[in-house]
Simulated assay, not measured.
Amino acid sequence: MSRPSTKISELRLDHVTREFGGVRALDGLDLTITGGEFVALLGPSGCGKSTALNCLAGLLPLTGGTITLDGRRIDTLQPEQRGFGMVFQNYALFPHMSVRSNIGFGLRMAKVPKADARRRVDEAIRLVQLEEHADKFPGQLSGGQQQRVAIARAIVLEPPLVLMDEPLSNLDAKLRLEMRTEIKRIHQTLGLTTIYVTHDQEEALSLADRLVLLRQGRVQQIGSPEEVYTEPANRFVAGFMGYRNEIELPVSQVNEKTVVLDGLGGGLTGVRRDDLGERVVAAIRPEDFTVGDGPNATEITVEVVEYQGREQAIQGRTGDGVDLHLRADARLAPGDRVTVSVPPERVLVFAAESPAAPEEVA
């Protein structure tokens, strides 16, 4: 399939706000996206990510702010005037139309000449690898195949922007992995500009060039997957991105970059990430613990073991009653007493009053 002729240079969201009954579902979103970028809007349910996508699509009017595409304001345009491609969670295919007809529907509505439309539909079918299914109906396809049809229908229009709203959430785990690879391949092949909504951290990390992490309508962090994963901006981002251990402890010593905390064995040293009070929260990923002696060593009693193939997921408890979650290659059993350690640079220390919202981190 040829590269889109409607390449964009820049999409800008300036203080985009959307209220529902006086409640701000989206609160002053500022974001600039360059042509060819894959940006994921990430966060828990109700954080504002789908609201942002619907504002971009024109399905929701803005309460405040502006959206401009290459310097032209578009938030006042109707959805069909924006010309964006949309891929929905529920596929939204016409059950009485064949794969070929579903993909070509938008081209017919746009009155694209038949020969050109046929060529573009054929190219889209090849791109999503559905040549053998072109004359089937949606009901004859698997979930993954139906989602490929929905993607082909969006890209066949050669849109300046593709919007994807949780497109893989209805698929099983194996299909999600396969379709994730397909979406990445199609994006790279066509050089599309894509905005992708998901609540799945792994999905966002694997697909996106940049992540926009939202909470209660406000941006918490914008950055590359590596930046957000390794350098979370606050305690909420850390919790959402997998820092499952959040241990509240008193401060023993504060240096410019490091903090020494009382508790957890002989004390815990970590990296300072906040202005700190007397009590703080140390955030640690389960996979950053090592079974064996080392820095920040403490002894735990194994309580719960979950088999996960080459690894075990382990919940243990320290002598002073702190529950720890870790992953280990070593085969452990409930009741085992082992020493675990974690490098200080893998321990992020936040103020205890920083918002954690654990009920949202699901």
Rank of each mutant, 00 (worst) to 15 (best):
E132R: 15
I300T: 01
R273I: 04
A92Y: 02
V340K: 04
V260Q: 13
V260D: 14
L42G: 01
H133L: 15
R331M: 14
L213G: 11
A313C: 07
G270I: 01
C47D: 08
R218M: 13
A92L: 02
E80L: 14
L214V: 07
F105L: 07
E345R: 14
I314Y: 00
V280Q: 05
E132H: 14
R12S: 14
A154R: 07
R210N: 03
L53T: 08
I222L: 07
D262W: 11
M1T: 13
G263V: 08
S252K: 15
N245F: 04
R272W: 01
I74F: 03
V149P: 05
R108E: 13
A208F: 00
T194G: 01
R337P: 04
S142H: 03
D329M: 15
R108Q: 13
D200L: 01
S2V: 15
E360T: 13
F88G: 09
A57R: 07
E360N: 12
E19F: 10
G139L: 11
A362L: 14
P79R: 06
E303L: 09
G64D: 02
V128R: 06
Q253C: 15
V349N: 04
E166I: 01
D165Q: 10
I33T: 09
A333Y: 13
E360P: 12
T66L: 02
A150D: 09
E178N: 09
R18F: 12
V87N: 00
